[in-house]
Design a protein around this nucleic acid. Structure first.
Lengths: 137, 137
DNA sequence: ATGGACATGTTATAGTATTACATCACTGAT
DNA sequence: ATCAGTGATGTAATACTATAACATGTCCAT
């Protein structure tokens, strides 16, 4: 059903919990250094503290990295969904990011990989453009 | 048929031609700074010379940016194909990158965007994993 | 020849990520 | 209880990626 290892949020370490909380509270994606600034009041002093926590959170499927933004978002999906195959629509006007799961498209990409003999570990799918709200204005 | 503006390679400026040539000669993706080092013998001295040329080459569809690598590849397709919708399979063992055009999957992503009212400008699709050659060893 | 558009040169700086090494906290085996 | 091993953390330094700002050059159309 799901080949992804999920982390019990209650099992997060202090730093991981702080980073996850900062991302969850944010409306959109945050860069590592933005997270660092958010958490200076909690004793964070160096980027590595953020990057280390992010690494674990991403492994656990609680956070996604947006490659085209060098930024990070908390996963909004309930624990247990297919985090590995998430896709993102990124509005270039307002910065809003919407996570979705284009299962059919992902299946086709998996098929392509399989037919090519490519062992797929993860996919990055990021759509850039204008969100409906920005188009309306 | 094709809504992409293509550049006549003969119309490239000197710097653009040098950068394109460096990328074409390379077996795989190069970072901007790797390109800079390649071209120091040709008088390149600053990253901006590379980045400016890359910007134009990407606009023209001659070069693609790999977001998950912060690197760049020359497009191997003949001028005229759908560069905007290219996808890449990136081998995490040997670094080899294969460009492909998963039209069906891209159509589904376009459909998703359309149904959501999202005006799609470009897509990033990058598959990470192991290529057949590396799996065989 | 002059003005405008665009390509280029150069320096400095901003933004993103990792290496290296020291310390601490917990757990399990003796 | 002690010790070794593992993993989390702290800290400083550095490497890597990208852009801002400003000066200069080149070419073409008027």
């Amino acid at each position: 059903m799901n080949d992804h290892v999920h982390v019990d949020p209650a099992a997060l370490t202090k730093n991981q919990a702080l980073v996850f909380s900062a991302l969850s509270d944010a409306n959109g994606p945050l860069t590592a250094y933005a997270i660092l600034d958010e958490l200076r009041g909690d004793g964070f002093k160096a980027p590595l503290q953020v990057y280390r926590a992010l690494e674990k959170l991403i492994e656990g499927g609680l956070v996604h990295r947006l490659e085209s933004l060098n930024a990070f978002v908390a996963c909004r999906h309930p624990t247990g969904c297919s985090h590995q195959w998430a896709a993102f629509a990124i509005c270039e006007s307002c910065g809003d990011v919407k996570e979705f799961s284009p299962d059919k498209a992902m299946d086709l990409l998996k098929d392509w990989a399989e037919n090519d003999g490519f062992k797929l570990a993860k996919t990055t799918v990021e759509l850039r453009g204008q969100c409906p709200a920005c188009l309306a204005t």
